[in-house]
């Protein structure tokens, strides 16, 4: 049964890489079921993240957000700060797709704080880029300028010419 769980996870990832997102969801749902049977929180966390990703490419952004929220809860339970940051970043982007910019900003700020704690300058740069765009969408140009300047400063430091 444990091997079945791992195999469903691998199958889900293969379907995903092939662009077969419905099949990816089916496999990752099975993987999730087996992870729950075993109380395997790390595997459960991976399955929720993979499901969120597949729902993004199916255009089902609300479902993606629900799955990323479960990823975030489990990342916190598992005390994995890098995964927590990644989940916040995914949620920020998903709420941007849903045009809910206030929620997007909440999650991008959470991502920014963790990236700063972890001294992840690339993550911090991406958070600033995302925040600049979200504030622009809200018409808050002062905040947009603040984050655009921070993004520029970090991009120079990390040598990101694009």
């Amino acid at each position: 049964r444990a091997a079945q769980g791992r195999t469903y996870g691998n199958l889900g990832n293969t379907h995903y890489l092939l662009g077969q997102f419905r099949n990816a969801v089916k496999s990752h749902e099975q993987r999730l079921l087996i992870a729950k049977e075993f109380g395997d929180k790390a595997a459960e966390r991976r399955a929720y993240c993979n499901l969120g990703n597949a729902y993004i490419f199916l255009g089902e952004f609300s479902l993606a957000a629900e799955h990323y929220k479960r990823t975030l809860q489990l990342a916190r339970q598992l005390k994995d700060r890098a995964v927590e940051a990644q989940a916040c970043y995914s949620l920020g982007n998903t709420y941007t797709l849903l045009q809910d910019y206030e929620r997007a900003i909440d999650y991008h700020l959470k991502h920014l704080i963790i990236a700063q704690d972890l001294n992840d300058r690339i993550g911090e740069g991406r958070a600033c880029w995302s925040l600049g765009n979200a504030y622009t969408a809200l018409g808050n140009h002062d905040q947009a300028m603040h984050f655009a300047e921070k993004h520029l400063e970090i991009s120079k430091e990390t040598g990101d010419r694009s």
């Binding site: 995914s90 982007n93 941007t96 991406r126």
Partner: peptide, 26 residues
Amino acid sequence: TQRMHLIQIDSVQRWMEDLRYMTEVE
């Protein structure tokens, strides 16, 4: 409409380009 919106926001577009080949491996 959602896809049109997506193209307008470059940071989201970049995230999705990365996400397309990102998987949580067993």
